[in-house]
Design a protein around this nucleic acid. Structure first.
Length: 769
DNA sequence: TGGGAAACTTAGAAGACATTCC
DNA sequence: GGAATGTCTTCTAAGTTTCCCA
């Protein structure tokens, strides 16, 4: 929902009667139990008959069990039978290296044709055995599969110790680390120039775990005692990693291709599984390699060592009669399960939070597709309930029961500002919040009805908005913030997501807080697309589609960090546009040089010829000249490097001088032009028509560049992808493409087209969200 | 029934790959 | 042809919701 929509809702919701403060209408005051009283003095405000929930008093004390996955506690595992991995069918075959007596171009053409043919063949084959679940009846979704076969997971390669001369230095002395500790030191060294390595919490957590691993493995081999992080010097390791990266980059494209093919061949068996007899793609079939945990924002555990996962840590999930993939040699699987009520193929417990990581199907799989489809259908279902929900929360904003008021305000915020539910968080996580977990300090009230939200949401992304809200919402927020509440206290002290979701389910089965985000995102997209006129070029339509997408992304607060060179890129692009403008003006002046009378005949055409000041022009000239000089200098160096390598004769300095003289001539020309206003006409500029054609071309370029720049600037901090992938019903995009004659490839990448195949094939031109 | 565990979706960063520019 | 830039994919962290058991 856009802010404009929000204000519309506000209008619909605003009430005329004034509310009596709850404190006056409610006599009874419930005192919280003693152990909750300390933080929640606010429940002593005595407004109502319902109690503050205990979540606040628990004060982030989620307990985490530290025991490892006990094989004894799991259901009796069937015998882990060792069998050879079944050979899945190969999908692709590469061309051999047969060289024919053809030109390079013909060769390439031929290859292209062959590739295309192969792809077509594959497509036909794929389509033949493709399972179009969206054309079938909806089946029971508690059973996820009947048969499931897969080949297990790929483990990261074992650690390769560094060459003996690459070491960690302590107090200037090289340290002989046992490989296990060297690996951990290497994790840090690899990040040496990143922000993580500069973060003291990251350093501390890393160092503690590093010392632990060092201790576990008998300490340094050359009796150096490592005590202080500040005395460690990782630069030699870092430089080595950089060198390796550089060498990898230097490989020829043929070598790179070879490596890629080998990798793909190796991964092939793990990339696919057999689900109910169909070949389907697995998503993350690679077990996460050991590394330092990189938490987002101010994460208390950032930098801790994420330990290596062994086959013994892995639980496999597959059919009872499916062959069990062999565990790596000398190992066995932690457990083998046959649970067809879940979607995962394998899982393990990680050591940072003691939680699970899962290996699942890919986004283009039938199971994921079905979940996605259901998600959007559920959001569409909300259309039929949204009026009632809005009517009720508007009414309940004045409820005499505090819990009801809090629910009403929370749903209002979730609906209008697309806030997330906001579950409880423990102390060993970053301090981020959503709706239910908003605290006193996250909301600033500016009478009569302006609210400033300022908090860190998911991924520690800042949510900052200064907005006008419904008057009664404002009044309620004032009440929720009344003393004795103070910074640190929960705004919604009677609420948590489960209470809210339970309430929402009275309206519609399956309705939860997150459905509102999907609903409002897709609804906004539909409304925005409806506004786009069906005219103009594909590029213009795309730009408008992206603008609609951006509205949704802004609603959902999807951000991205501005890239390093962004400011410079923008400056460059602006300069480029200015230079094009200058060229255009120059052309017009040239026209007048050929035919003076045109100024009177077509005054409008020439109205911009004095737009640039002499200073502007001089700056442009300077820029062009400097660029030219740089260009030739670079060319000279590059050319000679090449010749040196090929043991050819080097270009003499005089060559560079010759090039630079040409630039000098140009400079002189510019200076003269600036002084006299006379343009030296090029031989091709021999008629007004020719120059006018040139002007037209320039105008086109200026327009394109300006649009691109505007788009780039507006997108610099907004991430469009997240809403496109998760929130906007893909059928909206499909319909847009069909109706507006825009190729779907312009909107969905290959991966997204696979993910949204169900939408591409099922939505017709008249479909609406 | 509450609360922790489990299972799933959503998210931005980083790395890989493709395209454009000079 | 190679560097710069942009786009796409992969990775895994960080959420939400559901499940299940004491």
């Amino acid at each position: 929902m856009t802010i404009a929509d929000a204000s519309k809702v506000n209008r619909e919701l605003s009430s005329d009667e004034d509310d009596v403060p709850l404190s006056q209408t409610l006599k009874k005051r419930k005192i919280e139990s003693t152990n909750t009283a300390s933080l929640q003095g606010d429940d002593a405000d005595g407004y109502d008959s319902d109690e503050a929930i205990s979540t606040i008093s628990k004060k982030k004390t989620k307990k985490i069990k530290t025991e490892r996955l006990p094989s004894s506690s799991s259901p009796p595992s069937p015998q882990v039978k060792k069998r050879t991995t079944p050979k899945p069918k190969k999908i692709k075959k590469e061309d051999g290296d047969v060289k024919l007596k053809t030109t390079k171009k013909e060769d390439q053409e031929k290859k292209k044709r062959k590739k295309k043919e192969d792809e077509e063949d594959q497509k036909v084959k794929d389509e033949e055995d493709e399972y179009k679940w969206w054309e079938k009846e909806n089946e029971d979704d508690t059973i996820k599969w009947v048969t499931l076969k897969h080949n297990g997971v790929i483990f990261p390669p074992p650690y390769q110790p560094l060459p003996s001369h690459i070491k960690l230095y302590y107090d200037g002395k090289p340290v002989d680390l046992p490989p296990q500790a060297e690996e951990v030191a290497g994790f840090f060294a690899a990040l040496l120039e990143s922000d993580h390595a500069k973060n003291p919490v990251f350093q501390k957590n890393f160092f503690n775990d590093f010392l632990q691993v060092l201790k576990e493995n008998g300490g340094p081999l050359n009796d150096i005692e490592i005590k202080e992080f500040s005395s460690c010097d990782f630069t030699k390791m870092f430089d080595y990693f950089q060198l390796q990266k550089e060498q990898k980059k230097q490989l020829t494209s043929q070598e790179k291709k070879q490596i890629r093919l080998e990798r793909e061949k190796f991964e092939e068996d793990y990339k696919f599984c057999e689900l109910d007899g169909r070949k389907e793609q697995v998503g993350n079939f690679k077990v996460e390699p050991p590394d330092l945990f990189r938490g987002r924002g101010a994460h208390p555990k950032t930098g801790k060592l994420k330990r290596r996962v062994n086959p013994e840590d892995i639980v496999l999930n597959l059919s009872e009669d499916a062959p069990i993939p062999p565990a790596p040699e000398g190992h066995k699987w932690g457990e083998v399960r046959h649970d067809n009520t879940v979607q995962w193929l394998a899982m393990w417990r990680e050591n940072i939070f003691n939680s699970f990581k899962y290996v699942r199907l890919a986004a283009n799989s039938s199971l994921k597709g079905q979940s996605d489809f259901k998600k959007f259908e559920k959001a569409r279902q909300l259309k039929s309930y949204i009026d009632a929900i809005r009517r009720d929360y508007t009414r309940n904003l004045k409820s005499k029961v505090m819990l009801e008021r809090q629910k009403a305000v929370a749903i209002y915020l979730i609906d209008v500002f697309a806030l997330r539910a906001g579950g409880e968080k423990s102390e060993d996580e970053a301090d981020t919040v959503g709706c239910c977990s908003l605290r006193y300090e996250h909301v600033t009230l500016k009478p009569p009805n302006t609210v400033i939200f300022d908090f860190l949401g998911k991924d520690s992304i800042r949510f900052y908005q200064e907005v006008e809200v419904d008057k009664q919402v404002f009044k309620n927020l004032t009440i929720f913030k009344r003393p004795p509440k103070q910074p640190g206290h929960q705004l919604f002290d009677r609420l948590d997501p489960s209470i809210l979701n339970k309430y929402l389910q009275n309206y519609m089965p399956g309705l939860t807080a997150k459905v509102f985000r999907t609903y409002n995102a897709s609804k906004t997209m539909q409304d925005q697309l409806d506004l786009i006129p069906n005219k103009g070029s594909v590029a213009e339509k795309l730009l408008k589609y992206n603008a609609a997408n951006r509205t949704v992304a802004i609603l959902c607060n999807h951000q991205r960090t501005v890239t390093k060179g962004h400011a410079q890129t923008v400056e460059k692009a602006n300069n480029r546009i200015q230079e094009l403008e200058w060229q255009k003006i120059r052309c017009k002046r040239a026209i007048l040089q050929l035919e003076k009378d045109l100024l009177k005949k077509e005054p409008k055409y020439f109205e911009e010829i004095d737009d640039l000041t002499k200073e502007d022009e001089a700056t442009i000239h300077k820029r062009i000249i400097e660029r030219e000089i740089e260009k030739y200098q670079r060319k000279f160096v590059r050319e000679n490097d090449k010749r040196k390598f090929e043991k050819e004769e080097l270009l003499p300095e005089s060559q560079l001088k010759e090039w630079l003289e040409k630039v000098e001539e140009k400079k002189q020309e510019f200076e003269k032009e600036l002084k006299t206003g006379e343009i030296e006409l090029k031989s091709t500029w021999n008629s007004v028509e020719k120059i006018k054609a040139q002007v037209e071309k320039l105008e086109q370029r200026i327009q394109t560049s300006s649009i691109q720049l505007k788009d780039k600037e507006e997108n610099s901090q907004v991430s469009l992808g997240t809403s496109k992938i998760n929130y906007i019903d893909p059928r909206l995009s499909v319909v847009f493409c069909k109706k507006y004659d825009v190729p779907i490839e312009k909107i969905f990448t290959k991966t997204l087209r696979e993910k949204f195949k169900w939408a591409i094939e099922s939505a017709d031109e008249n479909w609406r969200f």
